[in-house]
Amino acid sequence: MIVFVRFNSSHGFPVEVDSDTSIFQLKEVVAKRQGVPADQLRVIFAGKELRNDWTVQNCDLDQQSIVHIVQRPWRKGQEMNATGGDDPRNAAGGCEREPQSLTRVDLSSSVLPGDSVGLAVILHTDSRKDSPPAGSPAGRSIYNSFYVYCKGPCQRVQPGKLRVQCSTCRQATLTLTQGPSCWDDVLIPNRMSGECQSPHCPGTSAEFFFKCGAHPTSDKETSVALHLIATNSRNITCITCTDVRSPVLVFQCNSRHVICLDCFHLYCVTRLNDRQFVHDPQLGYSLPCVAGCPNSLIKELHHFRILGEEQYNRYQQYGAEECVLQMGGVLCPRPGCGAGLLPEPDQRKVTCEGGNGLGCGFAFCRECKEAYHEGECSAVFEASGTTTQAYRVDERAAEQARWEAASKETIKKTTKPCPRCHVPVEKNGGCMHMKCPQPQCRLEWCWNCGCEWNRVCMGDHWFDV
């Protein structure tokens, strides 16, 4: 396979590697080409510095992935760790964990309700045991953590790749202090920090972006993250068709209702045909949960890209028209025109101005929308079919299609509260000796007794199943 190397943020060049090629071997190839010592090179990928003893497969490097290699003399205490030698983080029983690669970060837990604080980093599902597709590297999971809308060759929703760059020099040479644990960490600028490894760059702020994971991409090709779309790892039924499908869209209502993408497309087109989208002054033209839940309008309007190009163009047109109407304007009634106009409040005669090729020149009556006339309008008909009709959803289907309910059931079956801080902690095999993952707590306690870890627990039921 081919990976592209950008040395000291210059133009990239291809390097041929195998899945079992080590990072140090990659350094040696680059060092020979650039005429520099291999031990002064640092390989940066997806916000993480890659260790010498890791392989291309370990690092989730795919065909035509772009890695950054910078030349920086080692500072005291760094060289041993980078070589894969006596790194205290690798000691058996050590409590410190390697910062998780962005290629394996899962933010789907952050669609849980606000009262489930902490689960994004504490609760991990076991539903990723799908067998890898044919042709994928051994052991590589097909679980997708992110979804994007690819405006490039795909023109559809695709699995996405999370990447990070330095907000100062805009190069992907920043190593994160810690990985993101929720969508806010990724979507809110300057929320996460790190250290830029580019020479002479003092940058410390992280800037995240997404790429389409279905095809090789260049540095400049980015895609918009659709953070309401998630892999259906909890096997929730769709609120409309009641099938279990994946991926799904999880509405931001209190129940976190789930809808499959085909039904979401149908829901949007139906509402669009009836012009029953909601115009929100802050958000724009949007839709609420299909069950009509309060405070559930979709905030990231790129989710409506699921409509496809033709329907999305209609959505944008109707949204612009609705904006004009909300501002007190009118639409030209001549067939084939429909231009938005903003006449004076007491102006009865409205002319669709033909300047700049935008208007048709038609003069019409503001009251009856017919060709302009003197005197009273002959008839004014009330528009028919403008009443909002509820999208029919079966109550039982709505009850079963809740992301929140599956989460709470998982928590109930696989977790116990920490005796000190009461945060839910998952036990997935292993011994009875637990350690609270909350940095402010870190209590060592017994899963069996529910009390602080002691010699009695150690001698009596340390390794009970």
Rank of each mutant, 00 (worst) to 15 (best):
V3N: 03
S9C: 04
H11G: 03
G12A: 15
V15N: 00
V17G: 00
V17N: 00
S19G: 13
S19K: 10
D20E: 11
T21Q: 09
I23T: 01
F24P: 02
E28T: 08
V29S: 08
Q34S: 11
Q34T: 13
P37M: 07
L41F: 04
R42D: 07
I44V: 14
F45W: 05
K48E: 03
E49T: 02
V56I: 14
Q57F: 06
D60P: 05
D62K: 14
V67S: 00
I69D: 01
R72H: 14
R72L: 15
K76Q: 14
Q78W: 14
A82P: 14
G85F: 13
D87V: 12
R89A: 14
R89Y: 13
E96L: 11
D106L: 05
V117H: 15
V121K: 15
R128L: 12
P132L: 10
P133V: 11
A138F: 12
I142R: 10
Y143Q: 10
Y147N: 02
G152R: 11
V157T: 05
R163V: 15
C166P: 00
T168A: 08
R170I: 03
T175N: 12
G179K: 06
S181K: 11
C182R: 06
C182M: 06
W183E: 00
I188L: 11
R191P: 02
S198M: 08
A206R: 00
F209Q: 14
F210Y: 04
H215C: 11
S218L: 09
V224A: 13
S233Y: 11
S233A: 10
R234T: 05
R245Y: 04
C253Q: 00
S255H: 08
R256T: 05
H265A: 08
V269D: 03
T270M: 08
D274I: 04
R275W: 01
Q276P: 00
V278P: 03
Y285D: 02
L287P: 00
C289D: 00
P294R: 07
N295S: 10
S296V: 01
S296H: 01
K299P: 05
L301M: 11
Y312I: 03
N313G: 08
R314N: 03
R314F: 02
Y315W: 09
Q317R: 15
Q317I: 07
Q317T: 14
A320E: 14
G328F: 03
C332V: 02
P343D: 05
K349W: 03
E353Q: 07
G354N: 12
G355M: 12
N356P: 09
A363Y: 08
C365V: 02
C365W: 02
G375S: 08
A379D: 12
A379R: 09
V380M: 09
E382T: 12
D394V: 05
A398L: 13
A406K: 14
E409H: 12
T410Y: 10
K412T: 13
K413T: 14
T414Q: 10
T414A: 10
R420I: 11
V423F: 11
P424I: 09
N428L: 13
G429S: 15
K435Q: 05
Q438C: 05
P439S: 11
L443S: 06
C449D: 04
C449N: 01
D460V: 04
D460L: 15
H461G: 01
W462R: 00
V465R: 04
